[in-house]
């Protein structure tokens, strides 16, 4: 494990990504301390420029503090990113494992099903789901999870298939180890690293989908989110660029951070590279 950490941190992608991610996470955790007031509250003069009236990033059309919105928005992004990825992992890894182990007719049925789900325009399906089930944190998480699992299922299936035919797994079976022990001790540890990496990338993608949903007006109306802020600011972009620029930068930073961490994870978990 220390070897793994060393490799991870030695890569610039890992160090930079982790720092940025720590920053965003801190923002999310300490939001109520940094800006105790609700981000929905009007706290200044509408259309204040950045720096004016004590507002770092300016105010929006109703005089709400953009900086407060950016800080509070981190919460919803991270919560939805992680929760919907967990949902997708649950569906994808389960289906992938079943298909990979079972083989035969069940396997081809799952593969077909996954392929169809992968062709469906996933963002449109997410819109449909959230619109019909009415927008709330729970429905958004469910919708993003439901449209994000196919790549995870495909990868899991491929990994399980390739690892379980490897000779060291057959040798373990010949050694008389129980199926459970073979799976838990030999197959999973050797199959899981690409899935972890793709999982990290899925969090980033989920944050982007959440932002797009709330930009389209399908966010949870009880929580401030970056996508909503951009959507609200876009009609007045001629007069007030700051209303859409800052929340966008927040999304960009978060997603880059997660992608960098994912890339460094990939290098660190890949034994070929880390040993060289």
């Amino acid at each position: 494990m220390p070897q793994f950490l060393k490799t991870f941190l030695r890569r610039p992608a890992g160090a930079v990504g982790l720092t940025l991610l720590a920053l965003v996470t801190a923002m999310a955790i300490f939001a109520p301390l940094i800006y105790p007031a609700s981000p929905w509250e009007m706290s200044g003069i509408p259309f204040s420029q950045p720096g004016e009236n004590g507002m770092l990033m300016g105010a929006d059309t109703l005089g709400r503090d953009i900086a407060a919105g950016v800080v509070h928005g981190a919460r919803i992004s991270i919560v939805i990113g992680i929760a919907s990825t967990l949902t997708a992992l649950l569906i994808g890894v389960t289906l992938g494992c079943v298909a990979g182990y079972a083989g035969g007719a069940l396997d081809s049925a799952i593969v077909r099903f996954t392929e169809i789900f992968q062709t469906i325009p996933n963002f449109v399906l997410a819109i449909l789901l959230v619109a019909i089930l009415t927008p709330s944190i729970a429905t958004i998480i469910l919708a993003i999870g439901l449209v994000s699992w196919p790549p995870l299922a495909r990868l899991t299936r491929a990994q399980v298939r390739s690892v379980s035919t490897r000779e060291f797994v057959q040798a373990a079976r010949c050694q008389g180890q129980s199926t459970l022990s073979v799976v838990v001790r030999h197959v999973l540890p050797n199959a899981i690293s690409p899935i972890i990496v793709l999982g990290a990338m899925t969090v980033a993608a989920a944050i982007l989908i959440e932002a797009a949903l709330s930009f389209m007006g399908l966010g949870d109306p009880n929580y401030m989110s970056w996508g909503y802020m951009i959507g609200a600011g876009r009609t007045v972009i001629r007069q007030a660029w700051w209303m859409s620029v800052f929340p966008g930068l927040a999304i960009l930073t978060t997603v880059i951070a997660i992608n960098l961490v994912g890339e460094a994870l990939n290098d660190a978990l890949n034994p070929r590279i880390s040993r060289a």
């Binding site: 490897r166 000779e167 057959q170 040798a171 050797n190 034994p271």
Partner: peptide, 14 residues
């Protein structure tokens, strides 16, 4: 018991 061909694939690298 069995001994396989590929000495690189037949031991769990972890």
């Amino acid at each position: 018991q069995i001994v396989f061909q590929d000495p690189y694939a037949s031991l769990d690298p972890r």
